[in-house]
Design a protein around this nucleic acid. Structure first.
Length: 382
DNA sequence: AATGGCAGCAACCGCCTACAA
DNA sequence: CTTGTAGGCGGTTGCTGCCAT
């Protein structure tokens, strides 16, 4: 269809940017915001295409980006997120404040990928190259569980990243960046949200986890082996939605999302069928309407950016910080791991995280990260 | 000092999706 | 519904500087 007109145009400069060009771009955006990137070069007096200007701004000139060496924590985050999200650099970047996707991608390709490779870990699958993790009969169940966990966590993080982006696009009073002036309204895209303000959408996702958890047969964790193998999506579970969303706390943030691509991923996807998803979705919509009637301040959003085979709704409210549901579970992955491990016998069942501290997931990541953390002087792999 | 190899990174390119006309 | 445009994303390229020979 439409080719990349930008780089086909003759007479436009390519290659490295000069300090003068940088200054022109900075000055223009500081005064006018970027507006239409296509129109910007002419207005700013630059012999560049709009796309080049946008890339230069987002990857280099933007004032809210941090440059320089990645610290250990950032490295760990990248490795972990890459294991969960794959090469979705923009999604990874949303979890690393002030770092651009391009920078993360470069760092991965030039540093981390090689480091993992030298350690005998496949940088694509994040498993040992010999695949001892999954091939041994004793570990197969754990590996499968971990795989399911990773799929769900991946979906969760992806949705979270998307919501973070959306929240930044719609933030009513974007943080004033160091350029000051009207630029902030225009440049409040990724990476520029106030670092101290916790995105509300994260609570939404937490609530979503709570809803999913409550849909399962809570009393019998044996049914929670994995989301794609033994999901028990009963009518009782569906009936719990309004209990949580309306009766328990009318102002609780209630989130629900069905992600067919994720839920149906894997060989045993049929056990969570489309019919159940749609039915559940419809019930949630009803709940959302009821909830809105109860609380006029409630807002209902249709997260349309989801792909066509995704249905996602969330009911949002301003009072969600103390939502009891948020304490039900913090991280759906723990549920998935729980079943493959013996739960803490002292667990009261009120806080899933306490019950299953030291999960397989933790062990896996800790071991992985410990490997990465190994001193170059003390390890033969470096 | 010259040069060849390599690593790091900025920038380019092509594809994709969302959206408006 | 179709088409064109803008912007986003991920893979790749190529320039630059460093280091070994």
């Amino acid at each position: 269809m439409v080719k990349s007109q930008c780089f086909e145009k003759v007479g436009l400069k390519k290659g490295p940017w000069t300090p003068e060009e940088d200054q022109k771009l900075l000055d223009y955006i500081e005064e006018h915001g970027h507006g239409s990137w296509r129109a910007l070069p002419a207005k700013a007096g630059l012999q560049r295409c709009g796309k080049s200007c946008r890339l230069r701004w987002t990857n280099y000139l933007r004032p809210d980006i941090k440059r320089g060496k990645f610290n250990l924590q950032e490295e760990q985050s990248i490795i972990r997120l890459h294991a969960l999200l794959g090469n979705r650099w923009s999604a990874i970047a949303t979890h690393l404040p002030k770092r651009t996707d391009n920078e993360i991608k470069n760092y991965w390709n030039t540093h981390l990928k090689k480091r993992l490779d030298k350690m005998g870990i496949d940088p694509v699958t994040h498993k040992p190259k010999a695949d001892s993790f999954g091939s041994g009969s004793g570990h197969s169940k754990g590996a499968a569980s971990l795989s399911h966990m990773a799929q769900w966590e991946s979906a969760r993080l992806e949705a979270e990243a998307r919501l973070v982006r959306e929240s930044k696009l719609t933030v009513p009073n974007p943080p004033k960046n160091v350029l000051g002036s009207a630029v902030s309204a225009q440049v409040s895209n990724k990476g520029s949200a106030a670092p101290t303000a916790r995105p509300q959408c994260l609570d939404v996702l937490k609530a979503w986890q709570g809803v999913v958890f409550s849909m399962f047969s809570v009393g019998s964790r044996d049914s929670l082996e994995s989301p794609t193998s033994t999901l028990n999506f009963s009518e009782n579970a569906l009936a719990m939605i309004p209990l949580i969303g309306v009766q328990k706390n009318p102002t609780t943030t209630l989130a629900f999302a069905t992600n067919n691509a994720t839920l149906n991923r894997g060989a045993t996807a049929s056990e969570f069928d489309r019919g159940n998803q749609l039915e559940c979705f419809e019930k949630l919509k009803e709940t959302a309407q009821v909830t809105r009637n109860l609380d006029s301040s409630m807002a209902i959003h249709d997260i349309s950016p989801y792909a066509s085979d995704h249905n996602a709704w969330f009911v949002d409210s301003s009072a969600n910080e103390n939502a009891p549901m948020g304490n039900i579970i913090d991280g759906f992955s723990e549920i998935l791991v729980c079943n493959s491990l013996d739960p803490n016998p002292t667990c009261s069942g009120e806080n899933i995280n306490d019950c299953y501290a030291g999960s397989l997931e933790d062990n896996y990541w800790n071991s992985l990260l410990n490997l990465v953390d190994a001193s170059p002087t003390g390890s033969s792999v470096f």
